[in-house]
């Protein structure tokens, strides 16, 4: 089993929204960034993985097992941080830790205590008194304290201040280094995904628009700036997100290696410039579908 998660043809229909034939495989020892605008289906997909929502069709295998038939086992090995954090508000952080610890086979109390200290979370505070950022950190501390093999995080950095956001991302980036561990993280903040992901999947209007290793994707997608007449029409017509401005024209190619040779002369004459794109550009190009 080379994939820690195998998603096959997931379909979930809501009034006004359909998650349509989602198929994805997530390799071991990797971080998958699930990118998409709000309402694209990221949370629905993640909730299906956690069996909080049932799909109309399709299947999910996690750790090689049908996740619904083995949900207890799966949740035991998955660290989950949802887009909203729910705790019993009148209970303290210490109570919450003790309560959840009894459900997990591999709970590590020392690690939980260490994470509370590292994240500066007061043990005696009631969870309703915690800020949004601290609630996310508490969720993360719980998710990490039972030694999960897979972390599933739904927009964990939304609403966090930059310092905490960086801490959280750093923690996730190093998570697979222990071996055989993976992370699925959804976000519409592409910066976060760029920072940590090995693979990216773009979810647009309920469909997987693109799924590739991040570095491969960024090596193929480039913005081409060119002066009038510097690019043949057959090439410029293949560019997306085309713009014309006073300095010339630009557009994004999805297959730069195939163009590299063809435009080499233009680049040498400085009539054509090639610029790296970021995941934001890719997302916008996919959303606008230009």
């Amino acid at each position: 089993m080379n994939h820690i998660v195998e998603i096959d043809n997931l379909r979930k229909v809501y009034k006004g929204f359909t998650l349509d034939n989602i198929s994805l495989n997530i390799p071991k020892d990797s971080i998958l960034g699930l990118i998409g605008p709000n309402g694209a289906g990221k949370t629905t997909t993640i909730k299906i993985l956690m069996d909080m929502i049932q799909p109309q069709s399709g299947s999910v295998r996690i750790f090689g097992m049908d996740h619904r038939k083995n949900i207890k086992h799966v949740r035991n090995r998955v660290g989950y941080v949802g887009e909203e954090q729910h705790f019993y508000g009148d209970k303290t952080v210490a109570w919450t830790g003790k309560f959840v610890s009894e459900f997990f086979d591999n709970w590590d109390t020392n690690m939980f205590q260490k994470l509370l200290t590292d994240f500066t979370i007061s043990r005696t505070k009631k969870t309703k008194e915690l800020s949004k950022g601290t609630k996310v950190k508490l969720s993360l501390a719980i998710a990490l304290s039972h030694n999960p093999e897979l972390m599933i995080l739904d927009e964990p950095t939304a609403g966090l201040d930059p310092v905490i956001r960086r801490e959280v991302l750093e923690l996730l980036r190093t998570f697979p280094e222990d071996g055989n561990k993976s992370v699925i993280i959804s976000s519409h903040i592409t910066d976060d995904i760029t920072r940590i992901a090995d693979y990216v999947a773009f979810l647009i209007e309920g469909k997987i628009a693109l799924s590739e290793p991040k570095d491969e994707l960024l090596s193929k997608w480039k913005r081409i700036h060119y002066k009038d007449g510097a690019l043949e029409d057959r090439i410029s017509n293949t560019l997306t997100s085309q713009k014309t401005h006073m300095f010339g024209n630009s557009g994004i190619t999805m297959d730069y290696p195939a163009l590299k040779e063809v435009i080499a002369e233009g680049v040498a004459r400085e009539e054509i410039k090639v610029e790296n794109v970021d995941l934001d550009d890719v997302l916008i190009a996919l959303v606008k579908g230009e």
Binding site: Y80, D90, F103
Partner: peptide, 18 residues
């Protein structure tokens, strides 16, 4: 009432329990 107020079922659904 307590479960609803705290969204307790949403919390329990994140734990290894059916």
């Amino acid at each position: 009432q307590y479960e609803e107020k705290n969204k307790g079922y949403a919390f329990l659904d994140t734990l290894p329990v059916t």
